[in-house]
Nucleic acid binder design. Structure first.
Lengths: 246, 246
DNA sequence: AGAGTCAGTGAACGGTGTTTACCGAGTTGC
DNA sequence: GCAACTCGGTAAACACCGTTCACTGACTCT
């Protein structure tokens, strides 16, 4: 069992090569260039051979999508490792900046993962990026006093969904080893996390797709201003941020 | 000159049919189904004939994109026509709801126009959707007292861009016939309009792409809550909204 | 009436995803 | 050790794609 046969190792290796080559083509020449024949050509094999690994082009693309998510999560984890344990605000900032940077550096991967209508509501715990996002949210929840909107501003029709989401959040966070008491995650806070994601995503997507209604020469600053507002609105202080004197 | 020859009228007619057929294919079978041969087949002609109208498939797709924008703008204009002149808050709500509804009803058109990395910074005055968005913004600016962030919260590095954008805004609004005194459009207000667009776009795109981190059974309510917050943050009151008793 | 314009055609080229039948090296069971 | 089997890879074929090119034939203008 711990003895993968030679065949199995070879298979796993070419499988990795296929997906790697697919991504190289995606990055360098765009999504329409990632074709089975091109991939096979680069690998020195023929196109039908790929059907031993994936049932169709769509199937391959799907797996590539998952790889991309995993890589993004790995990137963010690396960034995060450099931030000391307790400084949760810096962790939040780091992950947001890391997400933006990754999106700008990998626009084609970004739009493949975050801007294709395909796919039902994604299971956040399956998506590694979701995992890391929620894990940071968990750390914030424990160590910082948040100022969420009072629960009664949330309309009744949303409560059930938010309850479910809260359960998801708690489960996902518990899985990462962090311990979150139930009462710290109010419905209002849950709603706030959603809003956080909406604004972060909107900003990054608009920047990647170039759909800001104006020419922005310094998008970096624009993002930082938005991020500062976002953090302030979430009730996180700047107290841990060294770049800010009182 | 006012006498379009029979040839010219025929040409314009088939041109419309081509783009119409392309959109039908896009809506019913997705972007990869909009192929020159399929379009020609539906029209009862052969594929090379399309090259009399467009220099390439990409060229056709580009024009289809413009058509989609024009249709969206027309939709929103129709919605807007039913709102009395003075009730600017309702106009804002109408246009935001209309944008969301259109995006959900036409997900493939939406992602083609609003979620493709292609294209540099788009000229908002060329895009008819941008026109209508800005025209409403203009009406709001004249008739409502806004509470924008004070100008000095805007970092210096962004000021130049915002100045340019403000000029664009004023020019676009002036083109619609609405008269806006220069001083009403502060830098802070300009920044606020940008933020408004970021949050609206983020919410709608996430809903269309199904990338909310939770299952939302009632997305309608979620949108309405976000919209209410958005309007409140923009400093617009609910005073004109009849569904809200004091 | 003759010249010219031009939408549309048919054939062809090189590319694509996918299926099918086949080969042959690696693995497995006896 | 050898037969049986598994299975990654191949070649050929099919239907489709975008695009080019030489050509036709009806409409338009002078």
């Amino acid at each position: 069992m711990s003895e993968p046969t030679r065949r199995e190792r070879a298979r796993a290796a070419t499988d990795r090569e296929i997906r790697q080559q697919a991504r190289t083509l995606l990055i360098n020449e765009g999504p329409e260039a990632v074709t089975l024949r091109a991939i096979a050509r680069q690998l020195g094999i023929t196109a039908p051979a790929l059907y031993r690994y994936y049932s169709s082009r769509e199937d391959l693309v799907h797996h590539v999508r998952m790889d991309i998510c995993a890589d993004l999560a790995a990137d963010l984890t690396t960034d995060l490792a450099e931030i000391p344990e307790g400084e949760t605000v810096r962790q939040v900032l780091t992950i947001c900046r890391g997400f933006r940077r990754w999106a700008l550096d990998h626009p084609r991967e970004f739009s493949m993962v975050f801007a294709t209508p395909q796919g039902g509501p994604d299971d956040l715990s399956a998506d590694p990026f979701g995992r890391i996002f929620l894990s940071v949210a968990g750390q914030v929840l424990i160590t910082k006093q948040l100022t969420p909107p009072p629960d009664d501003t949330v309309p009744p029709a949303m409560r059930a969904d938010l309850e479910d989401f809260r359960a998801d959040l708690l489960a996902t966070i518990a899985q990462t080893g962090v311990d979150v008491p139930d009462d710290i995650l109010s419905i209002g806070t849950t709603y706030m996390i959603l809003q956080f994601w909406v604004r972060l995503y909107g900003q990054v997507a608009l920047e990647v797709f170039g759909h800001f209604p104006m020419l922005i020469s310094n998008t970096e600053d624009f993002f930082e201003v938005m991020l500062a507002e976002l953090v302030a609105d979430a009730g996180l202080g700047w107290d841990e941020e060294p770049n800010r004197s009182p």
